[in-house]
Design a protein around this nucleic acid. Structure first.
Length: 331
DNA sequence: AAACTTATCAACCGCAGGAAG
DNA sequence: GCTTCCTGCGGTTGATAAGTT
């Protein structure tokens, strides 16, 4: 990887480092320290510029560099810090021992940025992107269209799909209402101490929830069984069957459904089934309770996130969603 | 199996800001 | 106060690996 070896006008080598060059650099720094980067190449017997040596050392050869994939915790830390600090990669790297700014920057650009965009967030502001968000239901519908056509009559499934989309929208919208931390007027007065207090775990939770939700579009969602099947890291968490939303109300321009959070909190233990009839792990309360955990259990990623230590008490609001119909859906 | 596309990441570039003269 | 030098940072590039058609 990297660029082809080449020499610039000054005759200094560029491009990928050879093992021999690495060895020279490491040997010199271990013995003398780096001192002046500009002077180092000559002293170390390298035909490189000081800048190149510094970069090679700090991003690759330094002994305390951690290699391998970013952990879930590291990913979360980067997201949280980025929400506060923006593209201050070196500052973010300061909170992740063994990770370089370059590595974090690459990870952000290749993974996290895309992930946020997929979930309908502006990666720079970490706030919802309403333009994309508004089109999400139709994207989901398109993704499911093929299976719809194969297995069920159009009329029957159109209603189901709309309801399921609306349910997901409702959940997303609720999550997004939670995701409005006041943006700092300036980052200059922020430090790691204030950060750890200011960035509540709420943002992490919501990120995890949305992360799970965004994965649903690839799965069996809202079709024949009305089953949500999120990615579950913990096999003990059963699938969750949504209440059947066959009969949404409909007016001229909107389809009105009660969103899953409301519906689900009204379910008792046992009424929520898993494919293999494994026991439901939420509260045994026989009445709707804030501590009943369907929505969280519904979202496997969140439940298995170590920062929350499993299923957290979580209350959904009563929520009625008016879901706008597109022109061709208005009957 | 080949062609094409997408993802990854090491390395480069240019700029900003602090230190030294 | 001005200029020069040096370091560090963030953005970008582009070769290669991996995946898809």
């Amino acid at each position: 990887m990297g660029r082809p070896p080449s020499n610039d006008d000054s005759g200094l080598k560029k491009g990928p480092w050879t093992p021999e060059e690495d060895q020279k650099l490491v040997k010199y720094i271990q013995k003398h320290g780096h001192g002046s980067w500009r002077a180092l190449p000559k002293l170390a017997g390298l035909n490189r510029c000081g800048k190149s040596c510094r970069l090679r050392w700090t991003n690759y050869l330094r002994p305390d560099i951690k290699r391998g994939k970013f952990s879930q915790e590291e990913e979360q830390t980067i997201l949280n810090l980025h929400a506060v600090l923006g593209n201050k990669w070196s500052a973010i790297a300061g909170h992740l021992p063994g990770r370089t700014d370059n590595e974090i920057k690459n990870f952000w650009n290749t993974h996290l940025k895309k992930k946020l965009i997929q979930m309908g967030f502006d990666p720079m502001t970490h706030r919802p992107r309403t333009d994309i968000f508004s089109s999400l239901p139709h994207l989901i519908a398109l993704a499911n269209l093929k299976e719809l056509m194969e297995h069920h009559s159009w009329e029957e499934q159109a209603v189901r799909l709309q309801a399921a989309e609306a349910a997901q929208m409702a959940t997303l919208q609720y999550l997004q209402t939670l995701l409005h931390p006041p943006l700092p007027s300036s980052t200059s007065n922020l430090n790691s101490t204030t950060f750890s207090h200011d960035m509540s775990s709420e943002t992490s939770t919501i990120y995890n929830l949305l992360s799970s939700l965004s994965s649903m579009k690839d799965q069996d969602f809202g079709l024949g069984t009305s089953t949500l099947q999120p990615i579950l890291h913990d096999d003990s968490i059963p699938f969750l069957h949504l209440p059947d939303l066959q009969s949404p109300l409909k007016n001229d321009n909107n389809i009105i459904v009660q969103a899953p959070p409301h519906e689900l909190t009204g379910f008792n233990q046992g009424e929520l089934s898993s494919p293999n009839n494994s026991q439901w792990l939420a509260s045994s309360s026989s009445t709707p309770s804030p501590s009943v955990a369907p929505p969280m259990s519904n979202l496997g990623d969140a439940c298995s996130t170590s920062s929350y230590g499993g299923v957290a008490p979580f209350a959904w609001p009563e929520l009625l969603l008016e879901y706008p119909l597109f022109d061709n859906e208005i009957s």
